[in-house]
Design a protein around this nucleic acid. Sequence first.
DNA 1: AGCCTAATTTAGAATAGCCTAAAAATATTT
DNA 2: AAATATTTTTAGGCTATTCTAAATTAGGCT
Lengths: 228, 228
Amino acid sequence: MNQNYNMPTSTEEDYIKAIFKITERNQGTASTNAVAAHLSTSAASVTDMLKRLSEKEYFHYEKYKGVYLTNKGRELATQLIRKHRLWEYFLVEKLNFNWDEVHDIAEQLEHVKSDKLIEKLDSYLDHPKYDPHGDPIPNAEGKFTIRTQISLFNLAVGEEAVVVGVKEHDTPFLQYLDQLKINIGTKLKVISQIDFDHSKEILIDNNSQSVLSHKASTNIYVKKRMFS
Amino acid sequence: MNQNYNMPTSTEEDYIKAIFKITERNQGTASTNAVAAHLSTSAASVTDMLKRLSEKEYFHYEKYKGVYLTNKGRELATQLIRKHRLWEYFLVEKLNFNWDEVHDIAEQLEHVKSDKLIEKLDSYLDHPKYDPHGDPIPNAEGKFTIRTQISLFNLAVGEEAVVVGVKEHDTPFLQYLDQLKINIGTKLKVISQIDFDHSKEILIDNNSQSVLSHKASTNIYVKKRMFS
DNA sequence: AGCCTAATTTAGAATAGCCTAAAAATATTT
DNA sequence: AAATATTTTTAGGCTATTCTAAATTAGGCT
């Protein structure tokens, strides 16, 4: 579907994506307030939009009950995530952007309408499975490659693992990791554990050592063995 | 300038670009009707827009007199053309699009707001000077690399030249050239000239022969010697 | 100098998306 | 179950962009 009469606008796409992200966590339905918070807009605007948009069958909306996506809506959301993550991959791998700089640009690029573009981009990038933050990129059919991963927080003293992703994507956190030379693929080993505040002493790539707070370690996803 | 409060909207950018293109041909000013035709909108909408937009100082507007760009406007238009042509180059050279498919996609991509993006894209593409249709890509300072070129129509019988560009960019014309295996860089030689309708018999890359109509030959730009 | 036509502008209205303030419904506490 | 707090919706309004139809102006022709 390429540039049709009935294409969703960028704003509509943002709503669908927000609903998708919220319903992924909150089993099934998204509240008006949650959507408003996610899009930094008012609850009144959201109600307005939901009423109009629900006619397009991307989701079911019932007054005071919140919304949940239809298959059509879920498909659209998945394709948007696919586009977003492919563009992020492009920006980092090809244009040498840092992983903390790409979100806003990808947010714009994901709204470009052309199926052919995204399929060609995907081929050009050699069908990447994960974006620069380790998040899975759905394929053209919308399937995500699920990976077994645990939070660094759950790694015991003495255990080793490789970084495969991050939970939060905000710039300060990503820059902090850069500083520690922690990136996707970095090998980490838990040296010791401070029970008092749940922080951990970590050996980074058999090289440097750092103490990571509870908050930091829950935000880092690792995998115990590579290629599994 | 990156995503400011006072950024021009996509629509505003389209107006500036239209005015730029019209004033390039029609020494200096663009009429309301010309802008309307260029943007496929009504003259009334254009008047409306011009009145509001002229406050942003991209151009001078005087009732019933048409508009002409200020330096600020000309600079914006040039940057938009830069973005458009760089993206076209990317689409053809990296993603393997055909030269007749890229316009609409580039039209969307050019509105993405990020100075850093376009500079990194430029570096990644190795600072191309011409887009896939042979049109010059302005550099970051807005300077175009001007090339001496003539219309194929002005080539005399027996003369040889290399294709460097096309005047019209519409899909059927470009596909017609593809069919004839005429592209940027193709060597052409005028075999004979039919006085009756000004068509020409052409030898293409020392290979095939075709008759090109007057219309076709005026639409092809060539250069007599390469690298000059 | 006046008329005609084409170009341009004004007037009035529609739509998408947003807002604030007030009202209504739902959820939570007591 | 009543009272209170929270969430959601409605009402009314704003701006950007577009439209059609009507009015105005400019420029050319007699």
